[in-house]
């Protein structure tokens, strides 16, 4: 089935969008001594999935919905509103910058792979559109469903941090993978919740906050030497 292969390609960490350069806040959490082993990593991933994971997946799903079901006249304004709504959910400037930078990297890949897709509907925000919006459009261009789009987004928020954990803490990759397997059904649940939420108006999309994610991100942004960009 063509759709399955495309889903796998988009969810793959090797998709050329620079995801491997980001730890999803893990590097700062490790430096703060909060994540030290598999147990604390699991708690980190669960919290990240329920906050940034849910919000990112809901916005990817909402962007997918905007380009697949809205008329072309309102696509641009809906995406611009989603972009502003996601800004309002991203209190830390460092996280806004990272999300837009990841959006730009993903958009470069998207334009090269699907040159006919309507990426021009994305808002011309300085710094580029937020990553979940670009992801939503990429998934739509690939013909993925809204539920698959949310799954790709939710999956990405935990796998990126998990593979960073192997590098940062020298954890056993088999054990980290087992941890991800254990989180899989929760990840599916988050994706399903996000896909449902995308039916709501933008202001009512999930806004799950994580104070330490904001605090860690700003601390991390001040480091002169770091292994990951975020």
């Amino acid at each position: 089935m063509a759709t399955s292969s495309l889903l796998l390609l988009l969810a793959d960490g090797r998709f050329p969008a620079g995801a491997h350069a980001h730890s999803g806040g893990l590097e700062a959490a490790v430096a703060a001594g909060r994540v030290t082993d598999l147990v604390t990593l699991e708690a980190f991933l669960a919290g990240r999935l329920a906050t940034a994971g849910l919000v990112g997946a809901a916005f990817a799903a909402a962007a997918h919905r905007a380009v697949t079901s809205a008329g072309s006249a309102v696509r641009g304004s809906t995406l611009a509103l989603l972009d502003a709504e996601l800004d309002a959910r991203t209190a830390a400037p460092a996280l806004r910058t990272v999300s837009r930078r990841q959006g730009r990297a993903l958009l470069r890949a998207g334009r090269a792979i699907w040159p006919e897709a309507s990426f021009d509907d994305l808002p011309s925000t300085p710094g580029g559109a937020h990553q979940p919006l670009v992801l939503g459009l990429l998934c739509a261009a690939a013909g993925l469903s809204r539920a698959e789009t949310a799954a790709v987004a939710a999956h990405g928020t935990v796998t990126g941090a998990a593979s960073a954990a192997v590098r940062l803490l020298g954890l056993d990759p088999y054990q980290v993978q087992a941890l991800l397997v254990g989180l899989a059904s929760r990840c599916d649940g988050t994706a399903a919740e996000a896909a449902r939420a995308a039916d709501e108006p933008p202001e009512r999309l999930p806004a799950a906050a994580a104070p330490l994610a904001d605090i860690h991100a700003e601390a991390h942004a001040t480091w002169e030497v770091r292994l990951f960009a975020s």
Binding site: R34, T40, F44, A46, G47, L49, A50, P211
Partner: peptide, 11 residues
């Protein structure tokens, strides 16, 4: 709230 007390949210 999954992970709320953990290192991603309130530590």
């Amino acid at each position: 709230a999954p992970g709320w007390a953990g290192p991603a949210v309130l530590g």
